[in-house]
Each structure stands twice: as structure tokens, then as C-alpha cells.
Design a binder for these strands. Structure first.
Lengths: 204, 204
DNA sequence: CACCCCGCATGACAAATGTCAGAAGGCCGA
DNA sequence: TCGGCCTTCTGACATTTGTCATGCGGGGTG
């Protein structure tokens, strides 16, 4: 047999990360060489250990999985990235693929499946959970322009228009226009439902 | 040594549940006798296997951990309940304790710690994560009246006042008054940030 | 019983928000 | 080069919120 697949595991929940490390170590062609709890930590660990495959949680403090994947792609092009996620939003998948991620799976898979998928990814193939893929396709592309999405994101935590305008360095009137067009494009009643809809589709 | 502690594991993420089961099985005084992926399933499994300790995820489809705990308390008073959660909101802890839960820990603990805590809970003691406990104490009690909380909850998804009024069978003016007082009590800028704050503190 | 708080309501006012029209400059593809 | 789209702005308007004063009835507590 050839040398084992060297893995980096990143997940902020110690319980999951530890358990996963233990389970994957049972497979004798897999070897966990590093663990991380945050985005930056994952990056540092990757630099230090140059793993074959990085298994990243999508939601982590610091920088999310996709962001880490982007940096990784630049710094360690040989390191394949596999993203695991609790609740898979359609848009995240698209972003992940755009960032050069090779695999995207929900946490509902079993450890056996995950081990197989790690091997698939390591072999240079891609793997995307069929259900998530179907969701992503049916959700379609975002109808929002870059600015509309940006302004909508700034509106996410309920900030008033003046604050959004400040943070986006735009005139308040412009902000309201973008918000208005985003709301109509999404078929929402107001900016807040618009934010929710965009979130659900992964467009923010 | 006495007979092992019989465990029920409930978590909707197969990956975590399986990994956890494997890890806890390594401890020779712990025995996983049942697993479940949803609230109702957890309940059915508990009835069928009468475990000593039920380890429940807080967020599960069907019925959340606290709901399951309440039912369990009535049907199987001898079954101790331990809740594990990803993001621990202060209010959840309070609700859980009120439901007779014996332990409450975040998923950031290690499997070793979890095993110890399971033993603690099985021995009849309680265990609450110190950090979560501190949060809960500092967050204090909800300053909202029942109606204020109700209206705030209905406002959560960005519905306009008229719709909230309809759904709550209240006059629109009354709704606005409740919203207004909730907003001032929470020190928020508007209803939406108020909803977010109340969510963070577990008051909705 | 008087008092106070809560639930519920109304009315009025100021501020924020949603919507529309119009206009200027930049960039890109036909 | 022209038309179309995106970005950015302004001004005006209707609607929705947020806030406050005030009123009435009910359920406790002292």
C-alpha cells in the first residue's frame, strides 16, 4: 500500500473534531496530522503540516471554510479541500466551488461515507452531495447586483439606512434605492424579509 | 465493577452521532444502547430502551432537546437527561433546567470531558458548563412581559405591523406600543435589532 | 377599598422607510 | 460608436414605524 492520506481537520466544536479524528484514524489509509478550531488556525496548521486533504467546517470563528479554502488554494495548490457543513445553503455550495473546493458534504453523512469521500477527493475527483447539488440548481443564480447584495448584507442586523450609508460610503438615498430594488427582485415585503430570503438561498 | 451506564444518543447530524457513539463506546463503563436523529425518534427510542442517561442535541428536527426532556421527565423519571449544544444561548439553559435537565454542555468540550460528565450526571449530580452558567447569570431574567415577547416573536421574520396585529388578534396600535416598549427595554434601535438581542439572550 | 400594574385600545406627531422619476458618468459588448 | 447595464446621486411623495399621552377595565396587594 502507498503512504496514507495526510489530513487536516478544522471544526470549532471540539467534541466533533476529536470524535472525527478518532474515527478517521481507524481507517489505516488515513492519517490526521493536524487539527484546528478557527479559520486562521486552520490556515496556520495547513502551512505547517502541508496536508493532502483539508476537511473544513463551513462555519468557524475567524474565517469561514470558504475563505480558508480560497487562501489555501493560493498557498498550497496541492492541498485538496473538502467542506463539511451542518445546514447547507445552496449559495454556499456555489461559492465553495468557485473557491476551488473539491468536495462539499452535509454532516448527515456517516463517517464511513466521509472516509470514502476523502479518498475520492484525494484521488483528484470531486464530490458534491446530490441533495445539496439539487438544491443549488433549483435555487438558481442570484438576481442581485454586487452593490445590492452588499447593501443588503449591511442591512442584515437591522441597522438604519444612515448607518448602512456610512459603512458603505454611499448616499442614504442610494442605499434606499438599492434596498428597494433588492426587495422587489426578491419579491419581499420589506428589507428584512428580503435579507431572510437572500440568506436562505445563500445569496448574501 | 457494576453494570455499565446505558446511553441514548440523539443528534440530527449522523457524522457527529456516529463518531460520538464510537468514542463513548471506548469507555468500558459506558454503553450506547440507542441512537436517534429527531426529537420524536429520541422519545420512541427512550421508551423502547429505557436508557440510564439520554444525551440530547439541543437543536433537532421535530422537537428540540428541551421538549424531549420534558416528555422524558414525565414518562421515564429515572432517565437522566444531558443536553449538548453548539451555540449555547443563556435562555436555553434556563428553560432546560426548568425542564429537569441534569446537565448542559457546549460541543466545545472534549469526548473525555463528556464521558466524565455523563458519569457525574448518572451519579445523580448536576453539571452545567461554567461559561454558559456565567452567561445565563449575567444575562439575567427577561424584562419583557408575556405579550411583549409574543409580539416580538411574531415580528421576528420581518412581518409588517398589520400582519402581526392580525396574527396576534390585536389592534395595530397596540402592537406598535408593545414593540416600542420592548425596543426601549432591550435598548435597541428598532424592532429588528430588538429581535436579534432577545434571540441572543434566549428570551424569545 | 384604593392603588398599581398589565393588557388593550385610540389618536397624534415625528422620523424612518419604500417607491418612483430623472439624470450623469463608466464600462462592455455588438 | 451606440445601446444597454451598473453605479451613483437628487428630489418628491406615500406609507410604515417609533414614540408619547391618554383612556378604560381587570386582577392583585397592601
Amino acid at each position: 500500500m502507498s503512504s496514507p492520506v495526510r489530513l487536516l481537520l478544522a471544526d470549532d466544536e471540539h467534541l466533533i473534531r476529536g470524535a472525527l479524528a478518532a474515527l478517521l484514524s481507524l481507517e489505516d489509509d488515513l492519517l490526521v496530522v493536524a487539527e484546528a478550531a478557527t479559520g486562521p488556525e486552520a490556515l496556520a496548521m495547513a502551512r505547517a503540516h502541508a496536508p493532502d486533504v483539508a476537511v473544513l467546517d463551513l462555519q468557524m470563528p475567524g474565517a469561514d471554510g470558504v475563505r480558508v479554502a480560497t487562501s489555501l488554494r493560493a498557498e498550497l495548490p496541492d492541498c485538496r479541500v473538502l467542506i463539511v457543513t451542518g445546514h447547507g445553503r445552496p449559495g454556499h455550495l456555489k461559492r465553495a466551488l468557485a473557491a476551488g473546493v473539491r468536495g462539499f458534504v452535509p454532516k448527515t453523512v456517516s463517517a464511513q461515507r466521509l472516509a470514502e469521500i476523502i479518498r475520492t477527493v484525494h484521488a483528484g475527483n470531486r464530490y458534491v452531495d446530490p441533495e445539496l447539488a439539487a438544491d443549488a440548481i433549483s435555487a438558481g443564480d442570484s438576481p442581485l447586483t454586487a452593490r445590492e447584495a452588499e447593501v443588503l448584507e449591511l442591512a442584515a442586523d437591522g441597522a438604519p439606512v444612515t448607518e448602512i450609508a456610512e459603512r458603505a460610503a454611499l448616499s442614504p438615498g442610494t442605499v434606499r434605492n438599492y434596498l428597494s430594488s433588492a426587495v422587489t427582485k426578491l419579491g419581499a415585503e420589506n428589507r428584512h424579509t428580503a435579507v431572510r430570503l437572500a440568506r436562505e438561498r445563500g445569496w448574501v
